Simulated scan of single mutants.
Amino acid sequence: MSRTFAQLGITDSFRKALEENGILDPTPIQQKAIPFLLEKGTDLIAQAQTGTGKTAAFGLPLLQKLDPANPKVQALVLAPTRELCQQIAKQLFRFTKYGPRLFSEAVYGGAAIGDQMKALQRPTHIVVATPGRLIDLLEREAVDLSQVRTVVLDEADEMLSMGFKKELDQILAKTRGKRYTWLFSATMPPDIQAIIKKYMAPDAHRIQVDAQHQVNKDIDHRYIICEENEKLPVLLDFLRQQEDSRGLVFCKTKNGAQTLAKQLSARNYPSEALHGDLQQRERDRVMRAFRNRREFQTLIATDVAARGIHLDDMAYVVHYQLPDQLEYYTHRSGRTARAGKKGYSVALVTPRELADIKALEKALDIKIRPL
C-alpha cells in the first residue's frame, strides 16, 4: 500500500518544499528507503534504476539527521559525474527551502579547484563530490571528513565503470569505522560486491526496487527492423514524429556519434554529439544548449559520455546501435521515463540482430515490441 511522505516520517518543512517542487507521492525506492534510513540509518544497499527518485530517498533522511548547529561536514555524497553532483546539490538545496539552514557544496573536476577550496571554508554540512576531485581536495587538506557520519555512493556501478575504484578505496578507507554507508546502484557487478564485502556491515539492509525488472516499467521498449543503410532515414522519420520532444540517440563509438550528428544537421535536424574526448567547457556548452532547448533537441551520445545526463523530461531514447553490454542497455533506457513520466526506448536493429533483442528480453525480463 502506498504511503505519504508524512507517514514515512518526513517533517512539515521538508514536505512543504517537496510539494512546491511537484513531488507529492513517494516512489517505491523512497517508500522503502526513507523509513529505514530515518529510524536506523545503518548500512544500506539499494538496487534501483536512474530516474526512480534516489536523490530524495537518501537526501531527505540525510538532511533530517544533520545537526544544523554544527558547521562541519557531516555527510559525503559521491557521484560519478560533474552533472550528477550539480543536480544532487541543487535538489538538496530545494528541499531545505523551509527547513533549518543546511548547506551543501558540490565539488568536481573540470572546475577551478581554488574556488571550490574557498567555498568549503564556509559552513558546509554535506559535500557532494566526484571521487577524483575529492582526493585532490583531501591531498591539499582543503576538506575535513573527520565528522562525517554518513557516506552515500550514488550510481556506484557507474563510478566503478568510469575507473574510480582506486579513489573509492582511498575515501572509504579514510572514513572507515566512523560512518554508515548507503550504496545506490542500478546493477550489482562483482566490483560492487567487493566494495560491499570490504567496507559495509555484513548485515547491511538490502532493498531492491521492482526486483523482477532491472529496467523502469514506465519505459515502452520497442524495436524497428531495418538494414544498416536504412537506419538514418528511419531515425529521421522517428524524430519528425516526436515533434518538440527531447531525447537521446546512442552510438557505440565517438566517430559514430560525430558522424550521425553531422548527418542529421545536414538534413535540417540540428543535433550535437557528446563523447568522451570533449573538453569540459565544450561539454558544458552542449549540455546547456540541450537543457535550454536552444538550437537542438536531439543529443547524440556514446555510453561513457551520457553518464551524468539527468533530465526529467526526456521523451525517448534511441539505440542507433545496440550496446555491447547488458548494463549499457539498462543505463541508456533509464534516461527516459524519469520522475514518474512515461518514455520510449527504441532500438534500430538489422534482421541479424533480432536474436540480440530476444536475449535482452530474457535477461531483463522485459517485452520489446516492434514499432
Rank of each mutant, 00 (worst) to 15 (best):
E105K: 13
A106C: 04
A106W: 00
A106K: 00
V107S: 02
V107M: 05
V107I: 10
Y108M: 08
G109C: 12
G109W: 12
G109P: 08
G110P: 14
G110D: 14
G110A: 14
G110I: 15
A111S: 14
A111L: 14
A111K: 13
A111D: 13
A112P: 11
I113K: 06
I113M: 11
G114T: 14
D115R: 15
Q116I: 02
M117A: 12
M117W: 10
M117V: 14
K118G: 12
K118T: 15
K118H: 15
A119Y: 13
A119L: 15
L120W: 11
L120Q: 07
Q121D: 12
Q121M: 14
Q121S: 11
R122C: 13
T124M: 10
T124V: 15
T124H: 08
T124R: 09
H125L: 14
H125C: 11
V127F: 05
V127N: 05
V128F: 05
V128G: 00
V128Q: 03
T130K: 02
T130G: 04
T130L: 04
P131A: 03
G132W: 01
G132E: 06
G132A: 12
R133D: 04
L134D: 08
L134F: 04
D136N: 11
D136W: 01
L137Q: 09
L138V: 07
L138E: 08
L138A: 07
E139T: 05
E139Y: 04
E139R: 10
E139F: 02
E139K: 11
E139I: 01
R140I: 03
R140F: 07
R140D: 10
E141N: 10
A142L: 07
A142H: 08
A142Y: 06
D144S: 09
D144R: 10
L145P: 04
L145T: 04
S146Y: 04
S146L: 13
S146K: 11
S146H: 11
S146R: 11
Q147Y: 05
Q147G: 06
Q147F: 10
V148E: 05
V148F: 10
R149H: 07
R149Y: 03
R149Q: 08
T150D: 07
V151S: 08
V151C: 12
V152G: 02
V152W: 00
V152L: 09
V152T: 05
L153Y: 00
L153D: 00
L153R: 03
L153F: 00
D154P: 01
E155C: 05
A156S: 08
A156G: 03
D157S: 06
D157G: 01
D157W: 02
E158S: 07
M159E: 01
M159V: 01
M159L: 06
M159P: 00
M159I: 02
M159F: 03
M159N: 01
L160N: 00
L160K: 01
M162G: 01
M162H: 04
M162W: 03
